[in-house]
Structure formats: C-alpha cells, structure tokens
Design a protein around this nucleic acid. Structure first.
Lengths: 331, 331
DNA sequence: AACACGAACAGAAACGTTTCGGTTTTAAAA
DNA sequence: TTTTAAAACCGAAACGTTTCTGTTCGTGTT
C-alpha cells in the first residue's frame, strides 16, 4: 500500500479509502488502479483483520461431518457465508463433548467472528467462554438450556406426530419407535410427538414398542432386532434419524423381514437413500436448505448490524413427509 | 503482552520467547504464568499471523461436501490438521469449474498456508495463481496435468480390473459398465481397468455395454435404464462411483429388476449404504481414511520442513472389494 | 577474584492495514 | 469574484505480535 501511495503520489488514507468503498476522485481512482496493476498488489487480509479486530471467518462445530444431514446444512451455509466474504472453519467433534469443547476453544483462539454450533453437549458449557467475547452464536438443530443466543430448530414434535398419524391412517395400531439418546433435545421432542399423537388417537402406549437407539447405524440395527423380537404383533416402525433408519433397513434385511409386507416403516432424512431403498422408503424430511439459510442469515445479520441489541430469536421450521412405498395399508 | 511485561518487569522479547517455547528462567516463567492468570491473557493469533506471515490455516476445495467420499476424507484431514494447530477452511465448489477457481482465489485472499484440492478442472488452471505464492498444494483423488505438486490417488485401474475379474469368476461374460465423465481422470482410469481386464480375459468389448454417466444419482438411474434397454443379455453391471451406484440401485428398483437374480452388480464406495441395500451390495471400497492421512501428512511435512526442496510425490493407494450378495453365480 | 562464555534478557523496529484529527481542494451559492 | 460547505485528501498513530541487535546475568574455570 505504501508503494501504491508512493507511485500515485497519494496518501495512505486515500488508498485505504479506495479499498473500502470510500470516495476517491475519478482520476485518482484510475491512478490507483494502474498502480495496483503494475505492482500486482493484493490487500493483506491478515493485517486488515488485526486492525479491524475481525477475521471474516465463522466457525462451525458439528457432531459428524460425514452425516448427510450435517453435510447438507454446512454446504448451504458455507455457500451463503462465502458469498458474503466470510470463510467457514469446520470442526467435527465426533459426537464427543470433550472434543466439542476443545473445538470451540480452538475456534476462539483462531478469533472467528462467530460460531454456528449443532451442539452435542446439551448443557452448553462449552460455549460459555466464547460467549464472553460477545461474539454471536447460532445454535442449529438442537436447543440448549443455559446459553442465550439465536437458534434455528425444526418442529420435531410435529414431525413425529405426523409420522404416527400417517401410520394410523393406514390402519396401524402397533407402532414401534426407535428413538434417540435421551439427553438430546431432538430425540426428546420426537419421542414426545410419538406419545402425544398416540394419546390423541386413543392408542395406549406399550413400553415394549419404545426403544432408544444412539443415532448410529449399528444402534439402528440393534434397536430393530430388539423391537422385532419383543413385539411379534408390531406392524410398523417409526425411526427417528437417518443413521438409525439405515440401521433399521439393514436390520430388517438381515432378519429377512419384508418391508412393507411384514412391517411398515417410516424413516428420517436423506431422500436419495430413501429412494434407493427397495421398496422406496417413506420418510420424514427436514428442510436442510432452509436451516442453512436461516442460520447463515441470522449470523450475518448479527455480524453486520451494529444495533446488535435485537432480541434473540428461535426459528422453528416445518418438516415434510415424503411418501414412498414402505407403508402397507392394513385391515 | 505489554501488560504482562509491565506486570512482571520483563521485556517483550522474553514474554514472546515464553510463548514460543524459548528458554526462560524458572522464576520468570512463574511470574509470567501468574500475570497471564491475572490478566486473562490470550495470545492474539491474528497479530502473530501478520508477523509470521502464516495463518495456520489450510484451505480445502472439493466438488461436493455432501458426498460421503469427500466428507469422509475431510473428516479425517480436519482431525489431523487441527491436532497440529491448523484450521481447515472448506470450500464446496459444487462441481463447477468457475466456482472452483473462485474458491481458490478466495482462499488465496484469506492467505491460507496451503491448499488441498480434489480438482474439478482437470486443466488445473485454477491453481496457477496460488502456486505462484510458493505455498504447497496437495491434490487428492484426481490428477492434473499442468500443476507440479504432491498428490494422493487411488489405483483406479486396478480397482476396476478387480471388479471385472470378480464378476468373471462368477461366470459373467456380459458385463456392463457405468463410467464417469470422460474428462475426469478417475473415470478414465476405471474405464481403462475395465477394458484391460476384459482383454486380459479374452472377452470382446461391446460398445453397447459401455455407458458414461456424470457421477450423479440421476445419471446413474439413466445409465442403468439405458444399459438394460440396450442389452437384454447383460448379466452384470459395474458402477464406478457412489452416486451412480445409488442411481443404479434406484434404477433397477424402479424397473423391477431383481438383484442379483436378473442382474448382478458391483458398486463403488460407502459401505453403510451397500450394507443397507437389499441384498447387500458388493462394492469397491476406497481407503478414505488413508487418503486423508496421506494428504494431511504430506501437507504438514511441506509446511513444517524448511528444506522444502524434496521432490513432489504421488501416493497411489489400493482399493478393496467388500463382498456382499449382489453377485449371482451363473452357469 | 578475575575471566570467559553461553544463556537469558531488553528494546526498538517491523509486519500491512485502518482511523483519527486536521488540511486542502472542489464546486455550488452569493 | 468571493464565500462556504462538503468532499477529498494527508500523515501519524495504533493494532499485537516477532525478531534483530545488543546487553546483562549466571556459572564454572583458572
């Protein structure tokens, strides 16, 4: 920049102004552009970062990158953020609370301008330190108790209720559920939707029809085996996340159970997989693209608006059921 | 840091030395640590970056984040890199050459210390500008002509040959192939492996058995339909990437073709999906974890070693065939 | 006790920007 | 032409480190 100043005879401030959209007289603008060309100048963002105390980088902490649900959301967010000049630093914490905390600390040290987090630790202790910096946090998919910040969620209760209702309408009364880890809010909500809809429909809850998996493929396999073994009269299963849906499909394949002839199934997430199943799976689909948009949008709003005082918002998005052929009409 | 100096009565250089693993007398070390505690000091990495002209950040440019193959590799790399203090900036270029170039430019502006790229543009023009900075580039999965740098690849030709051989051993003689885009090196190599193994086995090539897809699900569906329509005598199909494998499965489901009774299949990548298929799919599996390790390892070596003059290396890793139940023994 | 020598320390300069307060230029109004 | 307000410009200081060039300190040797 000094060289440019020298070459053009202008002051540093003017050059800086040029780069930051300030007002510069046309002929000077020309001179500057010539100088840039000649010197192959490129602004040093690091120096700028130091001075402005902002890195134009936002950190993303997620439980598993190689989980399509996460990957889809990140793809969407990264796109939007990058189009606004923000880089995305991703940290995969392998669904481990300790690693999650470390990831946040790491990003903190890297001085990201904000963090988007799909939390593993429902207590939220891992975010406390970062929050003290006053920089924005956006939670996605799962809510957290202690941390006051924006979040974008999905109406999981409604999603589960819809799934149960759909099965009911097709004549099913013995509907099993493969739920998620009890401490994760999405799992609680989906479970709640299941219970409330059963109650709604005057179907008594049977404990043996309720199994808790751990949101993994292997967990889905085991849960499916358990359900089938314990409930010979069961006619349908609702599986509450993608990995376990895969597991449930694997499980029924390996048990030799025909879907939907012997058991009907409603899965969760990932349309391509559902479509690749034989028969095509009926699933609850989450609006990943919208989640990404909302999360990135809120983050950008917090970062660009100086009137940061707007109250924290919680977006709740609707899911949809994508019909397949995995539900048998019975009776 | 100045405050720390003031508080301890030490000089700036000593404090800096303390933070960079230099020698500091024990009592001074203590003093410094107390001061840090009292001031809640944390080093400002941005300032450090400015001074050292390194950001401890490496950029990753890939065609699609939400493609398990990419996601798995990134997961592995990110883990390793972060454990060495490096952050990972991910750019998903949506399999678009123009976006890929923009991504590289973006990362260049962000002053990443190196770029790991799974290239979309086989010409490699998008990397030229970055290469001029003298910073390291590591190519993964696909090779490129013009750019001289390290790369870590997979032995695609062997992979394809293995698949064909396996089908042959099970009695198949009319083996179709769903190949990838002609300009992508992995697709070329897999195709080459198919041809050379056929030749090896004295099976004449039939043009109608060779279809080029575009590495997408939809492309796989279409390719499968085309193959089936054109080749009533075909008994087996080899599909050469994950998305198209999914597509081929979808296609045969929708055409009502039984696997493996009517057509045998060997797919590519993603064990969980293969296992979830009914029947379980036999696939060629790429060593994503190893690719990640190698790529991150090479990158770190380039960054840490000052004798950067070591010659560029090209790692070629072996694939494996994971047996399923999608191959029928015929004749 | 004097000496030498390496380890430990000190201070200033530099990295490349932005920004603040103040000055000059420009163009419109009188 | 003069006046005036706004627009454009200038240079120094600052952001928080690292590093270079010396200086001082500690320790073991004669």
């Amino acid at each position: 920049m000094k060289d440019i100043a020298k070459l053009t005879g202008l002051g540093l401030a003017t050059i800086s102004s040029y780069f930051n959209g300030g007002n510069v007289r046309e002929k000077n603008r020309k001179k500057i552009e010539e100088a840039i060309e000649e010197l192959h100048y490129e602004v040093n963002e690091v120096a700028r970062n130091l001075k402005t105390n902002a890195t134009k980088t936002i950190g993303v902490v997620i439980p598993e990158l190689n989980n399509i649900f996460c990957a889809e959301i990140i793809t969407g967010m990264e796109d939007i953020l990058r189009n606004h000049g923000y880089a995305t630093m991703i940290c995969d914490c392998r669904t481990d609370k300790k690693l999650e905390r470390e990831a946040v600390e790491f990003l903190c040290r890297k001085r990201v301008d904000g963090i988007i987090n799909m939390p593993v630790d429902a207590e939220g202790g891992h975010l406390k330190a970062f929050q003290k910096t006053g920089k924005p946090i956006v939670l996605i998919d799962r809510k957290i108790q202690g941390v006051s910040c924006d979040s974008v969620l999905v109406d999981n209760e409604q999603a589960a209720a819809d799934a149960v209702k759909l099965l009911y309408e097709n004549g099913h009364r013995n509907i099993g559920i493969i739920g998620g880890p009890k401490e994760i809010s999405t799992a609680q909500e989906r479970m709640k939707g299941y219970f409330s809809e059963l109650k709604n429909l005057d179907i008594p809850v049977r404990e043996s029809l309720v199994v808790h998996g751990d949101y993994t493929i292997q967990g889905g396999v085991r849960a499916m085996e358990e359900l089938v073994e314990k409930n010979p009269e069961m006619t349908a299963v609702f599986v509450t996340n993608y990995e376990m849906t895969m597991g449930a499909v694997i499980g029924s394949n390996e048990l030799g159970i025909q879907i939907p002839d012997q058991i009907s199934m409603v899965g969760f997430d990932n349309l391509p997989f559902a479509r690749a199943c034989n028969p095509k799976l009926t699933i609850v689909s989450q609006p990943t693209e919208k989640i990404a948009e909302k999360a990135a949008g809120i983050m950008l709003a917090r970062l660009e608006d100086r009137d940061g005082a707007s109250p924290y918002q919680t977006e709740k998005l609707e899911t949809a059921i994508i019909p397949g052929k995995s539900i048998a009409q019975i009776r």
